[in-house]
Design a protein around this nucleic acid. Structure first.
Lengths: 336, 336
DNA sequence: TTTATTAACGGAAACGTTTGAAATACTAAG
DNA sequence: CTTAGTATTTCAAACGTTTCCGTTAATAAA
């Protein structure tokens, strides 16, 4: 690997000058600057990231904290897409991304935050299904810039999907279709689940739709089996709803199977809606009516915010950015 | 951040001694070693990854080259799962993983290989859908340890799925069910596609099944729309096959929709099989008969091999490791 | 011509490690 | 009581940068 010194001897100047020239400092003449840049290119020079980081305390590396309690990890389409766009945007800005977790180093267990310190990441993005772990709190309370996705902490920038209004939009559509008897299988206790429930509640009251306790179940996100069971349960009631809100599109598959196994069909006998807008939902027939989260925008926004936080620590304020999604009308809701 | 020097002054020894003690060198007395390790722990010391890397040229960072021509990136379940297990295994061994691609740094475009050099990754894993790009060749021809997944280069370790025998297994099952008229929509030209075709061919000849040119189509992997069209095309023939081999499970969804849209049903009117064993395939009804790739093992094996290559450069030989998958009998193939 | 000002460049320390060689302390043997 | 040998520790350079400060040279002002 060719270093600054190599260039300096070749050109007969000091390493300091080379460094300054390559970094566009002012106190180097245009002529030599041009010459140094050219030979650097010729010699195939690239800065040594470690040396630079050691000196500047900037690694141009972003830590991604990506814990999924369900163990699905990257398999979770929502997270995968968000991460994908986050990565793309970060790379556009010259940052690389590294997965961060708690790990063992030299026999001693390292917390996630310590891991970040060890690697000297410039910033951290947290996208978890569980924001209540000690690991998360330690990072939140640390002194490294952080952006959270779909969860809001005081004094930390957050990028959140419009879960509340998205749910309202869905319910209004269903109500417009004439449905009054609506069941909701919601996801597990989390900020996201609360928001969606709030939207559901709000829209229901606005439309004069009764929320029956026995039709409001709590299940797991992204768990088709669980949703299958809960849907079965709903269908065993003496009175069954005309429409079921599934926790999310993926879980919905289980719900749809339960309906099918009960000898009913969607949307003729019963309607169903999902949430997320994953690719698969639009390959079903009928297509699932759902609310598509704008994952590309969520990821890109998170990256931009994080980088802004890093590069302009003074002028950037922590804020909560809500990213709108889009209603997707499929064919899974019958117009009564 | 507490450094070696902090520990050294606290304990009244030199930094050299602290370094050696913490790294378990022999030439430091047991007493001081114990004392240094203890105070290091007390003071919350962690090594500075950059400084260490600068000196040792070892970063404990693995580069992941992860290009998906279809742009699905991490959304691709096969890759997501492989990456997940790769990550887990790597972390177990004390390595972090960083995404590597070509990028711009300081105005100059950096190739993927240069990027690796810049970040000084200890090793690279390549999991792409397209292994013919210059970026891949440059990495392959470089001097950084490499493991490829599902593609074989001479002189480089590869972890591959048993595409040939997996396909044979599938075809034998279908043949056992009594099918003779079999169509195959294969994926785009790639090492994987070739292997599967070889298995298909081999098993067909062994079972005396004719391979009709008009029933051997080439489409895209992971492209339901494309597979939808090609399936339609198959169904428009005067004579239609009794079973269709889809490029993969995900693409199969399109194929199944085409069958449904043609007023036919699976498996009553026509049978279908996929490949991959993604989660969705087992949520369909009927479940898709397919061949499940052992993604956890593929990823973990790749990580182990790569780390072995890094840590024992002498004793480790490049090899090709085939990871067996598992046949999944669903209900999408009719027994004739 | 002298002095002040500015532009261009070099010296050198520092970032936090690792590591071979040199130095010191200790132990055992003669 | 030396001497050799070993165990333990320190020195100091090095890794490749960045950056503050000093130096030189050139230019402008007096």
């Amino acid at each position: 690997m060719v270093s600054l010194k190599d260039i300096s001897v070749r050109c007969g100047v000091s390493v300091a000058t080379v460094s300054k020239a390559l970094n566009g400092h002012k106190d180097v003449s245009e002529a030599t600057r041009e010459r140094l840049v050219r030979t650097a290119r010729e010699m195939g020079y690239f800065p040594n990231a470690q040396a630079r980081a050691l000196k500047t305390n900037r690694t141009y590396n972003l830590g991604v904290m990506f814990l999924d309690e369900a163990g699905r990890g990257l398999t979770h389409e929502f997270f995968a897409k968000v991460l994908n766009s986050f990565k793309t945007e970060a790379e556009r800005a010259g940052y690389d991304i590294t997965f961060i977790s708690n790990k063992d180093i030299g026999g001693r267990r390292m917390s996630t935050y310590e891991h970040c310190k060890y690697r000297s990441v410039d910033g951290i993005v947290i996208a978890c299904t569980d924001f209540t772990t000690p690991d998360v709190f330690e990072v939140i309370n640390g002194d490294i810039p952080v952006v959270t996705i779909d969860h809001i902490f005081d004094c930390r920038t957050a990028v959140v999907s419009n879960n509340e209004s998205g749910m309202e939009r869905l319910l209004n559509y269903v109500a417009d279709c004439g449905h009054k008897k609506i069941a909701y299988i919601q996801g597990k206790k989390s900020a996201v689940a609360e928001k969606r429930l709030a939207g559901f509640w709000k829209a229901c009251t606005a439309r004069g739709i009764e929320i029956r306790p026995d039709w409001l179940l709590t299940g797991d996100y992204c768990n088709p089996d669980n949703t299958y069971q809960l849907t079965k349960k709903l269908l065993r009631n003496k009175e069954i709803p005309t429409c079921i809100f599934m926790p999310d599109d993926y879980a919905a598959i289980g719900g749809l199977n339960a309906i099918k196994d009960a000898g009913l069909s969607v949307p003729e006998d019963i309607s169903a809606v999902g949430y997320d807008g994953i690719a698969y939902s639009q390959l079903l027939s009928p297509k699932l009516t759902t609310y598509s989260q704008d994952t590309p925008k969520i990821g890109a926004t998170a990256a931009k915010q994080l980088i802004s936080l890093i590069e302009n620590p003074r002028t950037t304020f922590t804020e909560v950015i809500t990213v709108d999604g889009q209603f997707l009308e499929g064919g899974s809701v019958k117009k009564l």
